[in-house]
Design a protein around this nucleic acid. Structure first.
Lengths: 115, 115
DNA sequence: ATATATACATAATTTTCTTATGCATAATAA
DNA sequence: TTATTATGCATAAGAAAATTATGTATATAT
């Protein structure tokens, strides 16, 4: 199974969207969720994910709660109030990017996206 | 006018698609074409474009012809045979990325696994 | 016992941008 | 006439955001 490239810059938006949808998630859960939803076509590597989570937390967009489940550590992340606002912006930017790319690639002036 | 972010990795695909479409283009022409098609929402910076063109040429995906027009230099680029094949792959990957991103933001399972 | 899955983390490196700067000519506005 | 904008290429410095490799630790299945 060949992986689709994860265009750089899209990871943060993926994380934030998943948290918006699921309330709170831990890192490993995010990697599995992305694999599941995309049928394994997108793989989030740990080397990208964990630094991204730490950075979003440092920026005040995520809050973290550490828990111990089955004697294993989990760090649950959720959007802050500010993070929720920013998620709206990121999703709008993603939509605009996709619209522009489809315009460039498909030769369709104003494609309708199913967002 | 706020620019849409150009997700890293998408520039090469944009260049190759435009060359596939237009036969041959020079760098400055590419920047103007992208601006025109996307109503100014995407701007290709020269600092990104020229190194990208040089790299694609070094990889054997582009051929270059230098011409002098109105006493100004132009470097026309076109896809090599190999470049045309690779363009097909890049476009397929882009479409897959877009499909996956739409699946993620819709939180719906991937269409091609539904039955 | 060994491999796989779960769960986090970081260091080194690479890729790919942005920003700034430079050179040069042509056209246009002040 | 002089300054600015447009055309056209280029590269250096730095930042951003990945990949790859490695590390720690526990749980479960073969």
């Amino acid at each position: 199974m060949k992986n689709s490239p994860l265009y750089k810059g899209s990871l943060n938006t993926i994380i934030m969207k998943l948290l918006e949808e699921n309330g709170r998630m831990y890192g490993y859960e995010i990697t599995q969720k992305v694999k599941l939803i995309t049928n394994g076509e997108l793989s989030i590597t740990e080397g990208a994910l964990y630094p991204a989570l730490h950075k979003l937390e440092a920026e005040g967009l995520l809050d973290v709660e550490v828990e111990r489940v089955d004697n294993r550590m989990r760090k649950y992340y959720k959007l802050t109030e500010n993070g929720e606002k920013e998620t709206v912006n990121r999703l709008a930017e993603l939509e605009e990017f996709i619209r522009n790319m489809q315009t460039l690639v498909n030769n369709k002036p104003n494609p309708d996206l199913q967002f």
